[in-house]
């Protein structure tokens, strides 16, 4: 095994940033949610990488936790999307600005 741990970390960072770009730049709320999953996945990769590096499995446990949170988030998020779509007939988050003060 010759791959340096740095490569994994850089890959995680790249994936995270791509996901972040998706969250910020995209307007389709479903894509935004997908990008969010991408970011979470990047973080998971980092967890596991550090776990491997230290030979400690806590990173694995944390990954499971993060996975659970992601699952719950997706479920609620999708339910909200469905509800909003039924109500407003749109998935454009720029149109959904009822929080404007």
């Amino acid at each position: 095994m010759n791959v340096d741990v740095t490569h994994y970390l850089v890959l995680g960072a790249v994936l995270f940033v791509i996901g972040g770009y998706g969250v910020i730049a995209r307007k389709n709320i479903i894509i935004v949610l997908l990008s969010l999953e991408l970011m979470l996945n990047a973080v998971n990769l980092t967890f596991v990488t550090f776990s491997r590096m230290h030979g400690d499995m806590i990173g694995h446990v944390f990954m499971i936790m993060a996975l659970t949170v992601a699952a719950a988030e997706v479920a609620v998020g999708l339910a909200l999307i469905v509800a909003i779509y039924a109500h407003r007939e749109t998935v454009d988050i720029d149109v959904l600005k009822m929080l404007k003060g």
Partner: peptide, 10 residues
């Protein structure tokens, strides 16, 4: 990260 290598995965 590349300039200050933290060490290899193994």
């Amino acid at each position: 990260l590349f300039s200050n290598s933290i060490g290899s995965a193994n």
